[in-house]
Every structure is written in structure tokens, then in C-alpha cells.
Computed example of a mutant assay.
Amino acid sequence: MSNTYPQARILTKINDPLHIIKTRQITHNRPVTIAGPMVRYSKLPFRQVCRHYDADIVYTPMILAREFVRNCHARIADFSSNESDSPLIVQVGVNNVTDLLRFVEMVSPYCDGIGINCGCPIKEQIREGIGSALIYNPELLSSMVSAVKEKYGDKVRLETKIRIHDDWDQTVDLCHKLCDAGVDWITIHGRTRTTRSSVPVNLDAIKYITDKIKAKSNVPVIANGDCFSMRDLQKIVDYCGVDGVMAVRGLLDNPALFSGYDKCPWGALELFWHYAMEFGGLPHQLLLHHLHCMFESMGLEKSLHNELMNIRTTTELIEWFDSHFVLKRFGEIGFSEAVDIPFKHASKV
């Protein structure tokens, strides 16, 4: 199931995501912070960096249930975890009850909750009845939620991450069905299936739907979309009345977002290098893209950025870092503490 085969988990107040969502405002005087699922990018090393910088709950990338339950190679490739990777939500792309129940049986001992992807707008997934196709099939989606909750009850936490309909009341009706089916919390991405990410998230829609949900149930609601700073987070919570915020693209550039950093600190990059080397399993291009995104947030000078993107091997990448920057390793004094880029030579910003 994973590279390290953590022991099976039992939900406690420490790792129960529903308890965390409901109590974070009381225990930490702030809303719950969630690192959402990103295709390819929400792998174990990056998840651990987000946790270091105050992400309360972290998601895996979407895993296709159909492949996972049938193919051992897919299981090895798609899911790795360890004892410190908690609270963890495994997101699943699924279009039928049978595959979902098999998926939950296999994955739930190694995570703290399952999230059904009802928001992915990719056409190939929609054709398969996966992702945002599910918000137009409320009976199927509700039946999948009911099947899991009837079998596992509170032993398995179950979330649905949805997009909005053009008719907001259609989304409200869907959410009421999900609440009746037993969903533990709902994440609302404030865009429709066809809305581009360049279009601002619709906070009015999230507020409207959240108000309607809370009028009939105590199911928590999480807002998703356009959270790039703690100012954004507070604005979204105050306006929409949600229980917390999920960031996705904002964390890719700045995994320290939830700790109040306006740009990625150098310490986050050192941590990412450490976890990437300790856990392994990241292809070079994925490692490179993470570093590219973080450096963009830091404002690295263009010529160095171009050099970075032309590096073809991880060994060469490490050598390039050591030639240009003071890259501290785990155990060295000051590891993961620097904020600004520590150039070895004259400033390049």
C-alpha cells in the first residue's frame, strides 16, 4: 500500500479530521487550514512541507479507484505514506459504489479520511462519469456516500469536494442530499465545471450555498478557490461563513502560506529537498517543477531561473544548488530557518 507500510490508524481527536475542522477555531483561534489535492504534486514530500507550515489537514492527489483496486502496480505508484503523514485525506475518482467500497476497504486503514472528487473538470474524467460529472448525478453520488457510511459509520470520515452549478439552488439541493446521506463535511470550489481558473472564484455562491446548508444541518463547509495568503483566507471565512479554507495553487508556489508568509521562505525549499531525498519516489521533472514554483514566489532572477529549468538530472540539480546557494542539510545549524535566498555570491534578486 505504501513505501513504508505505516500501521493501521484509529481515529482519535488528534487525527480525526472532522474533530479538527469543528474545533480549530476554539483550540487555535483560527479557521482550519487544508492543503488540497493537486494532480501529481500532492505527493508525500510536499505534503510534509505543508504540514510543517501549519496545514492542519492534507490531501493526496486524486487516485482512480478503478485502477487502484485492480492493479497492484497502480497501488504502489499512486499512494505512499508514513506514520507522520497525518491527518491525511485520500482523494478518489470513482463512478460506482462497488469500486468505492473496495477502495475504502484497501485505503482507509492507512489514512484519516476519504474524499470523493466531484470537481475535476478534465473532459476525459467527465466522460467516465468521474469528477465534476458527479454533481450532475446526485442520486449516484448520494448512494456512494450512503454505502460507505452505512458500512463504516464514524470509523471512516468521508468528504465530497464539489463545484457549483450555474443554478446555485441545484448545488444546494445536492448538498442537502449529501448531508442526508451522511457526508462528514463538504468542500465547495466556487467555480462551475466550465469556469476557468483565471476567473475569480464566486464567493457569493459559496456564501449562499453555505448559508442554506447550515440552516438545515451541522455539516461543516470548507471553501476552496483563490486562497493565496492568510489575508485571503480570513476574507473568505468572514464573507462566506465557512468553517475553513482549502488552498491548492497558492500552496504550490508558497507551501508556507498558512504560516503567514507572503512569499515562499528559503527554509521551505530546504525542507522540500530534505523530504524529497529522504522519501524518494519523485521523478526529476516533478522535483524541478516544485522548485520552479517556489523560486517564482521568491522572485529568483530570470537568468538563474532559466538555468534551473534546463537541468536534466537530479544529481546536476543538487550540484547547481550548491554552486549558487547555501543549501543547508538536515541536522546543520540553521536548517530550514532562512527566509531570503542565501546566495553564495553577489545578490541575484
Rank of each mutant, 00 (worst) to 15 (best):
T4H: 12
Y5G: 01
Y5N: 14
Y5D: 13
Q7N: 12
L11A: 12
L11Q: 09
K22C: 11
T23I: 08
T23R: 05
R24D: 03
T27N: 13
N29G: 05
N29T: 10
G36T: 01
G36V: 05
M38F: 04
V39A: 12
V39T: 09
K43C: 04
K43P: 00
F46K: 00
R47V: 15
Q48F: 15
C50Q: 10
H52A: 02
Y53Q: 04
A55F: 02
M62F: 05
I63W: 11
L64W: 02
A65C: 05
R66A: 14
E67G: 00
F68E: 08
N71T: 09
N71E: 10
H73N: 09
A74K: 11
R75F: 15
I76Y: 07
F79E: 09
S80A: 06
S81D: 11
S81G: 08
N82H: 10
S86L: 09
V92L: 02
V92R: 01
N95W: 04
N96D: 15
V97R: 12
E105H: 15
E105Q: 14
V107H: 06
D112K: 02
I114N: 11
G115H: 08
C118E: 11
C118Y: 06
C118M: 11
R127G: 06
E128P: 00
I130M: 13
Y136P: 06
P138A: 06
S142V: 11
S143K: 08
V145I: 13
V148S: 12
K149C: 09
K149M: 10
E150N: 12
D154T: 13
L158H: 14
C175N: 03
K177Q: 12
D180I: 14
I186S: 02
H189T: 09
R193P: 15
T195V: 04
R196P: 15
V201Y: 03
D204Q: 06
D211H: 10
D211C: 01
K212V: 02
A215F: 00
A215V: 00
K216R: 14
K216H: 14
V219M: 01
I222Q: 04
A223G: 14
N224W: 11
R231P: 07
L233Q: 10
Q234F: 15
K235T: 03
I236H: 00
V237W: 04
Y239G: 00
C240Y: 06
G241C: 07
V242G: 02
D243T: 00
G244L: 03
V245S: 05
M246W: 08
V248D: 12
R249V: 07
A256Y: 07
A256V: 14
Y261V: 05
K263W: 06
C264F: 01
G267P: 13
E270W: 04
L271P: 09
Y275P: 01
M277H: 10
E278K: 04
G280C: 10
G281V: 04
L282T: 01
Q285Y: 07
L287S: 03
L288I: 00
S297R: 07
E301F: 05
S303V: 09
N310M: 14
I311L: 09
R312M: 08
T315K: 14
T315S: 13
T315R: 13
E316A: 14
L317K: 01
I318T: 07
I318W: 08
E319F: 09
E319N: 11
F325G: 01
R329I: 03
E332W: 01
A338E: 03
A338T: 02
P342K: 00
H345Y: 07
S347N: 13
